[in-house]
Nucleic acid binder design. Sequence first.
RNA 1: GCGGGAGUAGCUCAAUUGGUAGAGCGACAGCCUUCCAAGCUGUAGGUUGCGGGUUCGAGACCCGUCUCCCGCUCCA
Length: 487
Amino acid sequence: MQTLMLPSIISHAKEYGFIFPSSEMYDGLQAVYDYGQYGIALKRNLQNLWWQTMTQLHSHIVGLDSAILMHPAVWKASGHVDSFADLMVDNKDSKKRYRVDMLIENHAEALTAAGQEDEAKQLLAQLQSLLQKDDLVGLHTLLLEAAITCPVAKTSHWTDVRKLNLMFATKVGAIESEADTIYLRPETAQGIYLNFLHVAHTARMKVPFGIAQIGKAFRNEIVARQFIFRMREFEQMEMQFFIQPGTDKQWFDYWQNLRWQWYQALGIPKEKLKIKPHDQLAHYAQAAVDIEYQFPFGYKEVEGIHARGDFDLKRHAQASRKKVQYFDPELNQSYIPHVVETSVGCDRLILMLLCEAFTQESQVENGVSKERTYLKLHPALAPIKAAIFPLVKKDGLPAKAQQLFDALKYDFALTYEENQSIGKRYTRQDLIGTPYCITIDHQTLEDDTVTLRHRDSMAQERVAITSLQGFLTETVSLKRILQDCHV
RNA sequence: GCGGGAGUAGCUCAAUUGGUAGAGCGACAGCCUUCCAAGCUGUAGGUUGCGGGUUCGAGACCCGUCUCCCGCUCCA
């Protein structure tokens, strides 16, 4: 039943200006999406919340905006050039897809378990040699020679081995023949590591300290599915926290708890979130957990918290042959700091917020059952904070409403509407998640009071115009969420 | 990439066995003046995803192709 919700959310997001498929005039481009007028407003609010959480609530975290393009050597040093290129093969009978190296390694393990250690060693040696030569045909032959079978189909009916590089390559330089290959970054973190020394020196930071960054990253996914959950171009919100070696566990736990709190503060129900430890670690990680949200298609990762040790800084120090060291006055010694990162998929959070907010209720009114759809977005994140309506389009009500709009527009994202019936206007705002509607009627002209209508309950109350500024400041401010982050 | 499902107006869907592409909603303009999408009048919007074939005639039948959704794999 829950899985049926995703198509509704996708079409709602498109119909009401949150998220459009990219290049739809040309039939679309798989796994790329554009943010529409309300989508980008929601996204900016979310990014501001994260940014303020990191840089404003922590005096020892500063921001950064590094470039998407970096020296190609960065990705060799980081390990992405090697480990981000997966060699895949499909079994034609079971239709299952496997990574070639894992198939062969598993087979070698089985051989070892069966006491055939020499054969296992030889197999692994062949694998390494073929991988280094990038010999795809040889790998296919090896699969057949070693009689490696599909665990499901139990056959060796393999397709050709294909290489899938997860990084997008492009060329830098005007003359292509002389140009170097350069990659669109597959993660924003490396830009932070490259600026570690700059920030340490110019921000007068003492370890432990952190650098936060929001930016685009690009991955050439094999299969990109589930709407904006897995996109080829996506936005990361990453914070790299530099620490004394040996304090990794302590800070890993610290950030895991703090990030967990953040989702509570956002109002995501605890029972729809869970922390999942990684059983298989990425090439850079010492310890890793995911924070998962229960999407309509199952529990999926929205944020990763990783203890990366000194892997990245050390690799860059080696590859660049530069000294990457921090002198710690407390310990009176120099070292390469270790890193704990928190890495959020911004677009995944947007999808989480949409899933959480999308509400369909049926209610019986005068014996007639009516369906009501609205977005229960947190007021601080809603794209539009309040809509201002004259009850009718005459008797000076539009002018009065416009006056109120002008008075409040400097502080809040507002919308003004005078067309059609009041009910239609309320509904339109419900559909985009506007928490409050303010209606000017004839009484307003006499006593400067208005009707304040609440989105979720549809309740109305009579309030003074003079109270609106204070009311909105209080309710739509990020402050309420930030205060709940328990920093 | 493989398997399954689907593409007709902005959205939801119609269109006898192959016979002139329609409706509701929405949008826009005007009227009405009303606190929860429901009144009246009018307007715009389409090479039926795209290309080819069969046919006197294709939205429908055949072939190809593209895209989207679901599953397998990976990650943020």
